[in-house]
Design a protein around this nucleic acid. Structure first.
Lengths: 199, 199
DNA sequence: CGCGTTGTTGATTGACGGGTCAATTAATGC
DNA sequence: GCATTAATTGACCCGTCAATCAACAACGCG
C-alpha cells in the first residue's frame, strides 16, 4: 500500500508541474504520467479520469495551504500576530512557483462547471474567512465580518495580480499591502470607537 | 465592408456566449460559428485561429468596460463621486452574465502563456490603477498610489468571489464592500493628517 | 451580360489524446 | 515453488476538432 500512496503523490506533484509548464489543463495524462515515472494507464487506474486527477491535485494544494496556516498560527501570539501569520501563509513562496499559479487559475475556471471544484473553493473561502474572523473579532467588534471579507478578497485579488505579473518573484509587497489595509481598517475602527477592546 | 464588421461582432458575441455556457475554452470553433450564424471557415478567415478569436473577444470586453467607466465618469462630479462611478462600473451587471465571467477567468489562464493576453491584462491593470489614482490623489495625498493598488486588487478579488459564488446574482454588496474599504482608507488618512485636502 | 475579384461555405483531413484493455509483471498465500 | 490475485504497462482505439481548401456564391466593373 505504501507504493500506491507514493505513486499517487508523484502523479499529483507531476500534475502541478505539467500544468505549471503549460499554464492550462491542456496537458496529456501521458505527459503527467511520464513525469511521475509511471504509465498513463496507472493514472487512470488510480484516479478514474483526468478531471478527478486535477481535483485530487487541488485537494492536495488546499491541504498544504491549510497546514501552512496551521503551522504559522501555532507560533503566533495574539490576534494581530495571528492575522499576520495568515497573511504570510497566504503569500508564501510555494503559491507562486512550480505550477501553483496555473493550478489555482484553472481551478477557478473549473469551479464554474464542476460541483466538486465549487465545493472545494467554497471550503477554501469559508476557512480563510473564519480564520480571519476569529482574530478580527477581538480587534474590530461588529465590523469584523465585513473586514474579514474585504481582507480575504484583497488576498485573492493581490494573489491574482502578483501571480500574473510578468517577472514578479517577490510577494512580500502583496503581504505588506494586506497588512496596510488591515492597519487602515483597524485604525478606522479605533477612530470611530468601534473596537471592542483596546488595540 | 459593413457585413464583415457585423459578422466579426457576431462571432465575438457568440464566443462569449459559448464560453459562458461551457465555462472553458473547450468550445469548438464550429459551435461558435454556428451560434453566430456563419460557417467555421469564416471564423478562421476573419481571425486566423481560435486563440486570436478569443483575444479579439477579450479586447471587445475590455473596450466595453472602458466605455462603461468613461460614461460613468462623465456624469460624476468630484473625486469621491468619480471613485464611486469607477466602482459601480467595475461591478456592472454585464460583467456577471452572458459568459463574461468565463471569459475573464479563461483570460487570466491565457495570460500566463500568451504575450498578447498578458499585454491586455497589464493594460487593464494600468487603466484601472490610473483611474483610481487620479481621483485618490486629492483625497489621500502620498498614500494614493498604495491605496489605488489595494482598491484595484480588492475589486478583482471581490469580482472573483462574487462571480464564482453559486447563486450569486447581485453584485451590489461587492461594490458596497469596496466603498467601505475606500471609506476606511480615507478615514485613516484623515485621522493621520495624511490627506492633502479636506475630505 | 460576362468576367474577374472577393467573400463564404462546409466537407474533409490529419493530428491529437482520454480512456480502454490484453498482456506482462509483481505480490501474496499456501 | 506454484497458483492466484493484484498492480502495472503501453499499444491501441476511436471520437474530437482546429484548420484547410476546393467549390460555390456574391459583388463590382466594363
Amino acid at each position: 500500500m505504501g507504493k500506491e500512496v507514493q505513486r499517487r503523490r508523484d502523479l499529483i506533484a507531476a500534475t502541478i508541474r505539467e500544468i505549471g509548464q503549460h499554464g492550462t489543463l491542456n496537458v496529456t495524462v501521458g505527459q503527467i504520467a511520464r513525469r511521475a515515472g509511471v504509465s498513463p494507464g496507472l493514472a487512470f487506474h488510480y484516479f478514474g479520469d483526468k478531471e478527478a486527477l486535477f481535483l485530487a491535485t487541488m485537494r492536495s494544494i488546499l491541504r498544504d495551504y491549510a497546514r501552512d496556516v496551521r503551522d504559522a498560527l501555532d507560533t503566533a501570539q495574539g490576534s494581530r500576530a495571528r492575522l499576520d501569520a495568515i497573511i504570510e501563509a497566504s503569500f508564501a513562496d510555494s503559491h507562486f512557483r512550480d505550477g501553483a499559479v496555473a493550478a489555482w487559475l484553472n481551478f477557478y475556471v473549473l469551479a464554474q462547471t464542476s460541483q466538486e471544484a465549487a465545493r472545494l473553493l467554497a471550503l477554501y473561502h469559508r476557512r480563510l474567512g473564519s480564520n480571519l474572523l476569529h482574530d478580527l473579532r477581538p480587534l474590530a467588534g461588529d465590523e469584523a465580518p465585513a473586514i474579514a471579507m474585504r481582507l480575504a478578497a484583497l488576498i485573492d485579488g493581490l494573489y491574482l495580480r502578483f501571480a500574473l505579473a510578468r517577472g514578479a518573484v517577490d510577494a512580500q509587497p502583496a503581504a505588506d499591502q494586506v497588512r496596510a489595509a488591515l492597519a487602515r481598517e483597524l485604525a478606522a475602527c479605533a477612530h470611530r470607537g468601534d473596537s471592542a477592546v483596546r488595540l
